[in-house]
């Protein structure tokens, strides 16, 4: 019984649900504000994404006459719920350990793919040609980044397993615990290519320039999101805010779980996630233009895949 309550708290209050949503929206706000400052503008207030969300809840929802209404409204719900569960699976070093009942790294990996699929379904259900274009692009970019991220996770799992004397461990809790006892993988040369591959993975997964090809505003008018309005669009915003927390949190858990126990650990984690957001997302977003889908596809099958494979080979050979 207490186990179930712990899971409910983890999913809806901390670190999932309210906490993650506030953090995700705050990160988006920080991203937009810093971006504006770097461009010499004033920029929106930090809480802007939160204002946007409240605003969207006041608007009417319109459905295209040719759309399948159930699927049209189902897709954002599925996406947001999957991310709600995924946040509860990401450990925060020294502060939060996910309940084993919820699942392990493999479950998290599957959940991470759900928002992309939700976007694809949304795009095709909206029966808009731009949505369909977004669908194909989302599918291609998913195919491209899926391979590297699986190899990265496999490399970390094998590495931890080997160092602990076992074969492989897919428990994020164990991976974090091992790093806290023996030093983070950030300082392990074997893991450096994997870290680089992961750094390239998250702008693609979060749909940020140069990899925001499925939602390109200026060419396909936000693709799958084109037909959405009001609360349903708000759910997509919630989904992407939570996804930022999940992906950045996963990166920290896999490679750099520093920080002491208790409140200080949480503060360290928050600082880490903010730095990662500003360096890994804002800086990249502002300093590059959007790739074409074929360029992005080729890029992911070349560099990140090679880097991830290099780490994996090094781990296996060691």
């Amino acid at each position: 019984m207490s186990n179930q309550i712990a899971i409910l708290i983890a999913v809806f209050l901390f670190p999932g649900g309210l906490f993650a949503l506030a953090l995700g929206l705050g990160l988006k706000g920080a991203d937009r504000r810093v971006a504006a400052r770097l461009q010499g503008r004033v920029g929106p207030p930090l809480a802007q994404p939160f204002f946007d969300l409240v605003k969207l809840s006041f608007k009417t929802s319109m459905v295209p006459t040719t759309a399948n209404e159930t699927v049209f409204f189902g897709a954002p719900v599925v996406g947001a719920v999957s991310m709600l569960l995924a946040v509860a699976l990401v450990p925060i070093a020294g502060v939060y350990t996910p309940p084993t009942l919820l699942g392990n790294l493999l479950v998290l990996l599957y959940l991470l793919m759900v928002p992309g699929v939700a976007l694809m379904i949304a795009g095709s259900a909206s029966s808009s040609p731009y949505g369909a274009l977004g669908f194909t692009r989302e599918m291609m970019i998913m195919l491209a980044y899926e391979g590297p991220i699986v190899l990265v996770v496999a490399a970390v799992a094998l590495h931890t397993g080997a160092l602990q004397g076992g074969v492989v461990t897919f428990s994020l809790t164990e991976i974090v615990a091992y790093q806290r006892a023996n030093g983070a993988f950030l300082f392990d040369p074997v893991m450096w290519p994997a870290i680089a591959a992961f750094a390239l993975f998250f702008p693609a997964n979060l749909g940020i320039v140069p990899f925001d090809i499925p939602e390109a505003e200026t060419e396909i008018l936000e693709g799958p999101l084109l037909e959405y309005s009001g609360p349903a669009l708000g759910l997509f915003k919630v989904m992407s805010a939570l996804k930022a927390v999940v992906v950045l949190g996963l990166g920290i858990a896999l490679f750099a779980p520093f920080g002491p126990d208790g409140i200080l650990g949480l503060v360290t984690w928050l600082v880490e996630i903010l730095v990662l957001m500003l360096l890994g997302v804002t800086a990249i977003r502002l300093s590059s233009g959007r790739m074409r889908i074929d360029q992005a596809f080729g890029f992911f099958l070349k560099w990140p895949l090679m880097l991830a494979a290099a780490s994996l080979v090094a781990v296996v050979a060691a």
Partner: peptide, 8 residues
């Protein structure tokens, strides 16, 4: 916004 459906 790129889409009229998002606009106010």
């Amino acid at each position: 916004c790129g889409s009229p459906r998002h606009a106010d």
